[in-house]
């Protein structure tokens, strides 16, 4: 079901103040069970200073003027931090600019006359709810399975009791920067969620506070991930698509911890009695 339209090549960036005349080929689908199809829309006079989502706002406003139903798409912060926006643009999750979420992509990255193909994330674990919006609840299920450090409110010791080497804190942070957008899954030919899961595991497993639940957490999260998502066969597409440039190295840590977890948990913990 992916678009057959060729990528628009690498356009010369438009000069400031200019406008573009574009054609959008957008996936429309009335509901989860409805059939979907591409529809074409003319989008003339798009300012190069608009963000990609502002361009869609304008197109929607014009559709409403013509009494046609606007295009549904998810978004919220428009600052690249909430992970809500989720568009497949010309076959690439979040579009052509590396390390950039859809909401931070600007129209100056496109050229006059381009046809832009816009689709929802395509992954079995993320069913379409309408047009370009999908259900990413499967990510929440992975976190619910173990993506936390148990600490009841009010029971924590003084924060400076456990010094954490800056390098460890920084590495944990690099992993914690994941915004849960799902681009990694959409980019993966198998629809696997290894990059997302490994990022959460690395964040918590690297920190001293996370050690007590390390192996229980790892086994529970990975097992849930495998129930809900496809398997990882090391394509590496996820890393290239990730707007936060989460490195694929974290997946190695996931695999290592999972192996150890299997051994340890079988011996001591027996998570499921």
């Amino acid at each position: 079901m992916t678009a057959t339209e060729p990528l628009s090549g690498s356009p010369a960036p438009a000069a400031p103040g200019r406008t573009l005349n574009l054609t959008l080929r957008v996936w429309r689908q009335a509901g989860p069970d409805a059939p979907g199809a591409f529809e074409d829309y003319d989008a003339p006079g798009i300012s190069v200073d608009m963000s990609f989502l502002e361009m869609l706002d304008v197109v929607n406003e014009r559709l409403v003027e013509q009494s046609r139903e606007p295009i549904t798409f998810d978004h919220d912060c428009r600052e690249g931090i909430c992970g809500t926006c989720s568009l497949m643009i010309n076959g690439r999750p979040h579009g052509p600019q590396r390390g950039t979420a859809t909401c931070q992509l600007h129209m100056r990255k496109f050229a006059d006359g381009d046809t832009i193909v816009i689709e929802p994330w395509r992954a079995e674990a993320f069913p379409v709810v309408r047009d370009l919006a999908v259900d990413r609840g499967a990510f929440d299920r992975i976190v619910e399975a173990g993506g936390y450090i148990t600490v009841n409110s009010g029971s924590a010791p003084d924060a400076n009791l456990i010094p954490i080497p800056k390098s460890v804190a920084d590495a944990a942070f690099d992993a914690a920067a994941c915004i849960g957008c799902g681009a990694c899954v959409a980019a993966c030919p198998n629809g696997a969620a290894q990059l997302f899961t490994s990022a959460k595991l690395a964040h918590l497993n690297l920190l001293p506070q996370g050690q007590a639940e390390r192996y229980k957490r790892t086994e529970a999260m990975v097992d849930t991930m495998e129930e809900l998502f496809g398997s990882c066969t090391n394509h590496g597409e996820c890393e290239a698509a990730c707007p936060k440039e989460i490195p694929i190295d974290f997946i190695a840590l996931l695999n290592k911890d999972y192996l150890r977890a299997k051994l340890k948990n079988r011996r001591y913990l027996s998570r499921k009695p």
Binding site: P165, K166, A172
Partner: peptide
């Protein structure tokens, strides 16, 4: 205290 215990990666000095 609560957030540090949850694993919130606050900025740290070299001494940790």
């Amino acid at each position: 205290d609560q957030c540090a215990a949850q694993g919130v990666p606050f900025a740290r000095e070299y001494g940790g």
